[in-house]
Design a protein around this nucleic acid. Structure first.
Lengths: 185, 185, 185, 185
DNA sequence: AATGAATGAGGTTTCATTCAT
DNA sequence: CATGAATGAAACCTCATTCAT
């Protein structure tokens, strides 16, 4: 692993664990077993590290969504599959997601990242709903765009629940069923 | 207005605007037109101000929920009314809610406040669903407790959307409809 | 008790207990059940309170020494009696003495008070030794002034021991005997 | 000299001169020609600097006492030699000793240091007295332990005199003679 | 006389960032 | 590339003192 990646992955862990503010360059350097100065060889500032993490997450989501689109046709089970795969994405990118969720309120760059994620997720959900509507799987009365946004909203809520209150029982199935009843004939 | 209230309301504005960390005692004092020392005559620490704000919100929600319970019978329209009134509560307590949402990830006390809010909201929603089920308004297949939690989750998601992306069109109605379709016969 | 005396006696307790620096005007006011402003009606400054305490101690010692002189004739038992009565004085003015001892290193005024106490005690001891020498009770070889100072030094050391390490066994008798053997034939 | 040592020695000077409280980190930094932040690269807190100084003194005394024990046999002249060498130790560790003496009333850690010094000095004096008694040099009637403590007490008193009132004539010889007469046959 | 809120200077400490090696 | 000591601005907080009531 290159030094840059080491810094990046260590920072990811720490920010997810204790937050951006409590992740100091001193602690980061100590945990990564490098010197504080080295951080500034690879990143312009502490914020720059965060930006990189956010960019990486955006890319990861891009790759994920491409894969998703390939396997969604709008038939029965689409909604369920999409929600399930997204919950899987969260599970596999826990730290990164916790980071966006915890920084978009305090950092403009993070807010943009979050907006981008929301936008793409919403677009994808919208497409799914539209396809499903065309196939007669989803109620005609459902407004695709806004409903997609509602679902994205719910999804991010579930992510938070998982990340901040892991002791609460898993709601994946109930939430999926909740959505299914709402939109699927 | 007493000095304590002045500090409290100024802090509320600032924390909601720029977050807890960027709200420094120096800035707070300057904006409230008092000296930094004065803050510490009325509060033990900067964190203490936040705690007070959180306590106030909890109380406000308590009062709100009492009122809510009185006007909910579980008949047709209950779900809609409950969601609407909660969205109204958010509108009238914007700053406070933004503060809990933005601090529960970095402060244990805030996390407890948030947990308490979630718990009480969920309990209330659960009761509503149960009553409505008894009256034959809600599907028998809906699991009250978990569904209540799903709705709370969605509601908090909508709050965030409103607070952080006020430019996005209002989803209240669509979201209400989304829930209604999912649970009401 | 007048307010001034209340402040004085409360300050005495607190300074003896926790030291001059940790005795803040806020705490003092709280413990004396008065307001902070009231302190400044009766004293010019926090230091002024200390000065008053020191002056009181000087006066108390003056009165004590007058009484002492009356009952000392330089005969056998003089040294023992003088040491015993001084140890008694300490017992009855514990707080005040702890205060001088703990402040003369940090405050010029206190240093002067201490110097005055030392000077008068030394003078008195010197007189005693001289009288006793005249009566043939004390060795001719003992230099009165310096020996008096040595004894004063020892006495203050014993005071400290008593005040700061009260758990250590009482050395009064052994110390008295130590001095007696050194100067009495 | 390393920066750490520079801080240490500057702090030593200042604390001995003006006391621990009046030695502020700002002044310390200015006098040592470093920035305030630098202090905290080498010490955890202001108190930590004091602790280091105290530890150093304890070590210095340890080394000194080892040397002392080697050259004490309990024969005639032992008492005189021991007192003389201790007075020499004070002369060479003036600042450090002033620091313990001026802080043990306000800082628990310093009190422990002081207690440790007193304990070791007393033990050593006790041994000397015992040896000297065995050799018939010291009166049988002298209780070793308590007498040792009395002598330690006197010694610390002399130190204070030297450190706080250097203008007073040196009492070393008179005090030594005072002790000799009291214990040596 | 008494109050107690307000002050503001100054204390300790933190931390992102720089720079000589 | 890497180091880590040094920096200094700025954070939070304390406290003796003042002053309008």
């Amino acid at each position: 692993m290159t030094t840059k990646d080491l810094i990046l992955s260590t920072a990811k862990e720490m920010i997810a664990e204790v937050g951006f503010h409590k992740t100091t360059t001193a602690n980061l350097a100590k945990r990564a077993n490098i010197s504080e100065g080295t951080i500034y060889r690879h990143f312009e500032s502490k914020e720059d590290i965060l930006l990189q993490i956010l960019r990486d997450l955006e890319e990861a989501y891009s790759r994920f969504i491409v894969q998703c689109r390939e396997t969604t046709d709008g038939g029965y089970g689409t909604i369920e599959k999409v929600l399930a795969s997204h919950l899987g994405f969260v599970r596999e990118n826990e730290a990164d997601i916790k980071i966006v969720l915890s920084t978009y309120g305090i950092l403009d760059a993070a807010k943009k990242s979050m907006a981008s994620l929301v936008y793409r997720m919403e677009s994808f959900f919208e497409d799914c709903l539209r396809k499903a509507k065309d196939k007669g799987v989803v109620y005609d009365v459902v407004p695709e765009r806004q409903t997609a946004l509602v679902m994205v909203t719910l999804l991010f809520g579930l992510m938070r629940l998982k990340l901040y209150w892991p002791e609460i029982e898993d709601l994946s199935e109930v939430a999926t069923e909740f959505c299914r009843r709402s939109v699927v004939k």
